[in-house]
């Protein structure tokens, strides 16, 4: 790596704080009432990231065993699963399903990137990559989960009409599953299409600031974008399949009927 260009030091950090002042002035002048929120947000970002920074020192230190790294990754997945639950409270079994989805995505994407030697399996590589994987997948997971639950609720009549024609529960729900998956994946595909044209992505910007050659940074960024696409698809698919299974009983009935959660035969 070249000479780091972005070691801003404590003075630099303090000076960048002036920029919060701009936002504060705007809030005061236009009476937005956001001063307290702004200060709390700025302080929280500083404290949270400082704590993370110190913790990361242990996690990414090449001399320390990888166990800390993996504990960190598991912790991230747990926080993400909890966040999914908070943003999609109406979705049944959302925490175990999210964890399953993140695990599947981790196996697939980390397996390709580290297993095939794209990156060295060090804490310094695993933590940010797993972070980007989980962070980006979270949004898609929430969208897909909420959409599936909404589809099953809003289109009960149509789903049962298909079942009544002798279609399997999988076939009866297929069009709705497709809609939900498309809704979850399209934003990520759009982002991937326009990357570089509208905004420079975070990983690349960070690398360039830190002194890496732009073309080198681009290679890393593209690998990261592919990673994100792959993991978003994996989490969305696992969440969708898991959730759909829970919607129906093994004898092809909707599990949640107008008289409550399905009775009789067990759910699949």
């Amino acid at each position: 790596m070249n000479e780091p260009l972005a070691d801003i030091g404590l003075v630099g950090l303090a000076i960048s704080g002036i920029l919060i002042g701009v936002a504060l002035v705007l809030s005061l002048v236009r009476r937005l009432g956001l001063e307290k929120d702004l200060l709390v947000a700025a302080a929280r970002a500083l404290v949270q990231l400082l704590v993370v920074g110190f913790a990361l020192r242990i996690v990414v230190d090449d001399d320390d065993p990888l166990v800390f790294t993996w504990i960190w990754v598991v912790f991230m997945a747990l926080v993400a699963a909890w966040t999914v639950r908070r943003r999609a409270p109406e979705v049944p079994n959302v925490i175990p399903l999210s964890l399953l989805a993140f695990t599947a995505a981790a196996v697939v994407s980390l397996g390709v990137l580290f297993g095939l030697g794209v990156f060295e399996p060090t804490g310094r590589a695993i933590v940010p990559i797993a972070g980007m994987m989980v962070g980006n997948s979270m949004t898609a997971t929430v969208v897909v989960a909420r959409r599936i639950v909404a589809e099953s609720r809003d289109h009960r009549d149509l789903i049962e009409a298909r079942l009544a024609l002798g279609l399997s529960s999988q076939d009866a729900f297929a069009p709705h599953l497709r809609d939900a998956l498309r809704t979850g994946l399209i934003p990520q595909i759009e982002t991937t299409k326009t990357v570089g044209l509208i905004a420079l992505p975070g990983a690349m910007t960070g690398l360039i600031l830190a002194g890496v050659e732009p073309v080198e940074a681009v290679r890393v960024q593209v690998a990261v974008m592919y990673l994100v696409l792959g993991s978003v698809s994996t989490t969305a698919a696992v969440m969708a399949i898991g959730l759909t299974r829970g919607l129906f009983t093994s004898d092809h009935r909707l599990a949640v009927t107008d008289r409550g959660v399905g009775t009789g035969s067990t759910t699949a």
């Binding site: 049962e160 079942l163 009544a164 004898d251 009935r253 909707l254 009927t257 009775t263 009789g264 035969s265």
Partner: peptide
């Protein structure tokens, strides 16, 4: 009768 529901 269509087995959209089951007996208890």
């Amino acid at each position: 009768l269509n087995r959209l529901d089951v007996v208890d």
